[in-house]
Structures are given as C-alpha cells and as structure tokens.
Amino acid sequence: MKVKINRNAAKALKKMMEQEEAQGKLFRVYVTSIHGDHAHYDLRLDTPTENDEVVKTDKEIDFILDKNDEYLDGVWIQLFHVPKEEWLITNPSKGGHHHHHH
C-alpha cells in the first residue's frame, strides 16, 4: 500500500508526534465515509493491529493503514498554508475528486 505526503503536512505531523501523548504511536489514515466512488479521510494517532500495514513515506513518517480497506491504498495527504491553512486528504487512484478536509 502507498501513502504520499507533502512537505508541509510532514512537518506538521512530525511536530505533533513530538508531543508526549504521541509517544509510541503513529498516524492512522482512515476512511470517515464513502460517497459513491470516493471516500473521505481523516487522521488520528493510533497503534497498529494485526489487520494493519505500516506504510513508510519518503518524508520519514510512517502511517498505519487497514490493509483490508482498498480506499486507503494510494492516499495523498497535503497541508496548504495559502490562501488559508487547510488539510486535504484525497486518493487520486480512487475517483479523482478533490475534497476539502477541515
């Protein structure tokens, strides 16, 4: 499974992982809802179970994905600072819709 992340998002998540409550945890990408051909995603700190795969990215951050959820494969996590700060989590390989995540 694959996860892509942009530099702003990696920087922000690294900062969160330095907090005490994040010790020993990784960020899980999960599906919050599915609409027809595309899904909405979110992130939370979690620990992997035997149903999960820990996926490495090129930005030194690992993510937990449920290996039975095909909607997670190829997810792209981005953080933009302009025009306003916003997270955007999409999966270009599963319906090319861009959904804004607040």
Rank of each mutant, 00 (worst) to 15 (best):
D62H: 15
E70V: 10
Q23I: 10
N8R: 05
L43C: 04
D69G: 06
G36I: 09
Y71G: 08
A9G: 00
G24D: 01
M1P: 13
K84L: 10
K15E: 14
V75A: 04
V3D: 00
D42Q: 06
K59W: 12
M1R: 04
V54C: 14
L79T: 14
D69K: 06
I77R: 07
E18W: 00
K4H: 15
D73H: 09
M17E: 08
R7V: 12
E60S: 15
G24L: 03
D52K: 02
D62T: 15
W76V: 14
E20K: 11
L43I: 11
H100S: 11
D62G: 15
L65C: 06
I89G: 02
M16K: 01
D58H: 14
I34F: 04
E53P: 07
E60K: 15
K4P: 14
M16C: 02
F80G: 12
F27Y: 12
N8M: 03
K84T: 02
E21C: 06
P92E: 01
K4G: 13
E86H: 04
L13H: 10
D42L: 11
K59M: 14
D69L: 08
N91P: 01
N68D: 09
D46E: 06
M1V: 05
H81D: 14
Q78W: 08
Q78C: 09
G74T: 08
T90Q: 10
S93I: 04
K11D: 00
D52T: 08
G74I: 06
E70T: 13
T47A: 00
T47L: 04
T49S: 09
G95I: 00
D52C: 12
L43M: 12
M16R: 11
W76S: 15
V55P: 07
L43V: 13
G95M: 06
G24E: 07
G95L: 07
K59D: 12
K11Q: 00
V75S: 02
A10K: 14
D66I: 05
H100L: 10
K67T: 07
N6P: 11
L26H: 12
I5Y: 03
K94P: 00
H40T: 07
R7K: 12
L88M: 10
P83T: 11
